[in-house]
């Protein structure tokens, strides 16, 4: 658990982080999002003492990190940056083994751990173990970067815009990988991005920052339905708001537990599917109903188009979100 109390950092006359208090829960996937210069990276870099706060206290598992040796602290927290920063003169294996080597793990254990991590990140150990960073693509390099950060089984993983430099397809794949790793290991992850869609897709909670202040810290659904300010609403974006709203929930939330009568043609969708995918599927099939199966493939009910349009379990919204103004698309 990471607890921040009124943490402030100034660079000259510019206040990068302004009295931020927040808590990252054990095992949580917290995404810090905000425009550039909002202080999100500075806040992240204070959590492993790469930057020292001017005032305020940061506690990791109850201990004030100002009193801990910075190197020891960083060795138990993984760290991934946008520019990856693999050591170009070391093989992939030695890169991943950086922290275990610093901690003096026995060689056999390091080797096994490297194999395990390469497989976890879908890199063939036989091919990649002895490769050098310059022989890898950008996406492969960042996979190694993530593996390196996870090598010593840290309880906390800090990620600073790790996928921002990657093409959309690679980024999507790595986002999926991160979600799976988070589910599988229960590692606490603090993830910085300027991309709200990425934040909504990955986060348990999204912390929105602006001008050094924490504007809102809430689950993705609340960020969408109950933005704390116009700035948060702008960050989410008015375009395709409805699709984003659907994307933060899964089929399981809207499925009607009823038999599919009359039978619906076409393969069923999983209850874990995000709702925007289910909508896409309906449009593709020209159907207003989809059969749903649960994780084990057993029939779980039917998803109705009407339930996508309005959440059946929620009361009618008192203050409906501003409908996107119909305007000609403006090319950025």
């Amino acid at each position: 658990m990471i607890a921040l109390e009124r943490v402030t950092k100034r660079f000259g006359s510019w206040t990068a982080v302004d009295a931020v208090s927040m808590t990252v829960e054990e095992g949580e996937f917290l995404v810090l999002v905000g425009p550039s210069g909002s202080g999100k990276s500075t806040l992240l870099r204070m959590m492993n003492r790469l930057i020292a706060p001017d005032s305020g206290i940061i506690r990791v598992d109850g201990a004030d990190i100002a009193g801990l040796p910075p190197e020891a602290l960083r060795r138990r927290m993984g760290y991934v940056i946008q520019s990856v920063g693999l050591f170009p003169h070391w093989t992939v294996e030695r890169n991943i083994a950086t922290v275990p080597d610093l901690l003096g793990w026995p060689r056999a254990r390091v080797r096994d751990r490297v194999t395990e991590l390469l497989e976890l990140l879908k890199l063939d150990p036989r091919r990649f173990r002895t490769a050098y960073p310059h022989q890898l693509s950008g996406g492969q390099q960042q996979r190694v970067g993530v593996a390196r950060a996870l090598a010593a089984e840290p309880r906390v993983l800090l990620m600073d815009e790790p996928f921002s430099a990657l093409d959309p397809i690679t980024r999507g794949a790595l986002q999926g990988e991160m979600a799976a790793i988070h589910r599988g290991t229960g590692t606490t992850i603090v993830f910085v991005t300027h991309d709200m869609d990425e934040a909504l897709a990955l986060a348990d909670r999204v912390a929105v920052m602006d001008h050094g202040r924490l504007v809102q810290c809430a689950p993705p659904l609340a960020i969408l339905t109950d933005p704390a300010s116009g700035m948060v609403r702008d960050l989410v974006g008015r375009e395709e708001w409805g699709l984003k709203r659907l994307a933060v929930e899964t089929v399981a939330r809207r499925v009607r537990p009823e038999p599919a009568i009359p039978p619906i043609p076409g393969p069923p969708v999983s209850s874990a599917t995000p709702l925007h995918r289910a909508l896409s599927e309906m449009v593709a099939r020209g159907a207003d109903r989809l059969p749903v199966v649960d994780g084990e493939g057993r029939p779980a009910g039917v998803l109705h188009l009407a339930d996508l349009v309005r959440d059946p379990s929620a009361p009618p919204p008192v203050s409906p979100p501003v409908s996107p103004p119909v305007s000609p698309p403006v090319s950025p």
Binding site: L50, A72, R74, Y79, G85, F87, P88, T98, L102, A149
Partner: peptide, 18 residues
């Protein structure tokens, strides 16, 4: 030596001499 490499060395917990 690139800043990214330096930054990741620090971030992974290498001391100045390491």
């Amino acid at each position: 030596v690139s800043d990214a490499v330096r930054e990741s060395a620090r971030g992974l917990g290498m001391g100045p001499w390491e």
